[in-house]
Simulated assay, not measured.
Amino acid sequence: MSKKNKPGNASNTIALNKKAKHEYHIEERFEAGVALLGWEVKSLRAGKGQLTDAYVLLKDGEAWLLGAHITPLNTASTHVIADPTRTRKLLLHAKEIARILGQVNQAGHTCIPLALYWKNNRVKCEIALVKGKKLFDKRATEKERDWNRQKQRIMRDATTS
């Protein structure tokens, strides 16, 4: 993947699920296409998407994105009734779906969306197989993040003096 097409690139990113890294251990990532309607693409171009409480449901050999919120731009200009939280189909290969389904059936694993981003004029969703963090894991992660921040501050101050 080239630098300009990476999901973390700010210019291509539509929405991030920032809570996911705090709540879960990310085990494996997948890239999925998203089946969208015209008004949804238009709204996403304006940056009106959210993945805060979204999750992935695997049913009948298909993957579905539930709980993703895409705010309609202008309801008067569209000829369809805009449902911001409708269930959207994720486009994955059958082998990827089977792999995810096998992991989800194991205890403790779940599948969540991490990011929505543009890739060659198409909307892609980065989904991940995750395992829930315990409270002490969350505290340890936060402590490590604070220490790294403080370490950077010390290094920066040491080089400037």
Rank of each mutant, 00 (worst) to 15 (best):
N74E: 09
K89Y: 04
F136G: 03
A107T: 15
I154N: 05
T78M: 01
N17Q: 03
E28D: 11
A68H: 10
S43P: 03
P84Q: 10
A76D: 13
T110S: 15
L66H: 14
K151R: 13
H25N: 08
A98T: 13
D53T: 07
D53C: 00
L37W: 04
K134N: 05
G47M: 07
Q150D: 10
F136K: 11
I26P: 11
V123T: 09
Y55W: 11
E40G: 01
T159R: 14
T159N: 07
A54M: 12
Y117L: 01
A98Q: 15
G132N: 06
L51V: 03
K89L: 09
W118C: 05
R86V: 02
V123H: 11
Y55E: 15
L116G: 03
K124G: 09
A98M: 05
K124P: 07
A35S: 06
L129A: 04
R86H: 04
Q152T: 13
K21D: 04
S161G: 09
P84M: 11
Q103C: 07
A115G: 03
K3G: 01
N121V: 06
V130I: 04
T13Y: 01
G38K: 10
E62S: 09
G61A: 03
K119N: 04
R139W: 12
D60I: 05
D83L: 02
R29V: 07
T52K: 15
A20F: 02
C111T: 09
I81Q: 12
T13I: 12
L90V: 02
H25P: 12
L135N: 10
Y117Q: 06
R145Y: 09
T85A: 00
I112P: 00
A54G: 12
R153C: 02
A158V: 05
G67I: 05
V104P: 01
Y117T: 02
L36F: 07
K134E: 13
A46M: 12
H109Q: 12
K134Y: 08
C125R: 06
G61Q: 01
N17I: 10
A76F: 03
K59D: 15
